[in-house]
């Protein structure tokens, strides 16, 4: 007997390339879920990894950084928040 597959429909979950089972430090939702404002996960609600290696939903960390009391620091480690290659002015725009 010889078995040949003509087609194979597989199913997979996608996940961010992050340590598993972690949640966004701000909204406490899993990374694969959305921030509290978004509807669709994934590209519509991406993650942002700070230079301090803490990661958040982009919308979450932006709205945090826009607050004055944040002093542009990471809410987890209180280091100055900066993102690789992402100009600060963009944050202001968003």
């Amino acid at each position: 007997m010889k078995v040949t597959f003509k087609s194979w429909n597989a199913v997979a979950f996608w996940r961010w390339d992050m340590p598993a089972d972690d949640v966004c430090g701000i909204c406490r939702n899993p990374y694969e879920s959305t921030c509290s404002k978004c509807k669709y996960p994934g590209d519509d609600c991406p993650l942002l990894v700070g230079d301090c290696n803490h990661s958040f939903h982009m919308h979450c960390i932006f709205s945090w950084l826009r607050q004055e009391s944040s002093q542009e620091k990471c809410p987890m480690c209180r280091q100055r928040m900066s993102f690789n290659g992402l100009p600060r002015c963009l944050i202001q725009e968003v």
Binding site: V3, F5, K6, N9, A12, F13, W14, D17, G42, L47
Partner: peptide, 29 residues
């Protein structure tokens, strides 16, 4: 396929679920 996917969608990985899905099989007896 997963490699392709990672190329298209950055920073993401796939976890396959073997139990789901269907297939069309040809058996040559």
């Amino acid at each position: 396929y997963a490699r392709q996917f990672e190329a298209i969608r950055g920073m993401r990985k796939l976890d396959w679920i073997p139990a789901l899905g269907d297939t069309s099989v040809v058996l040559e007896l």
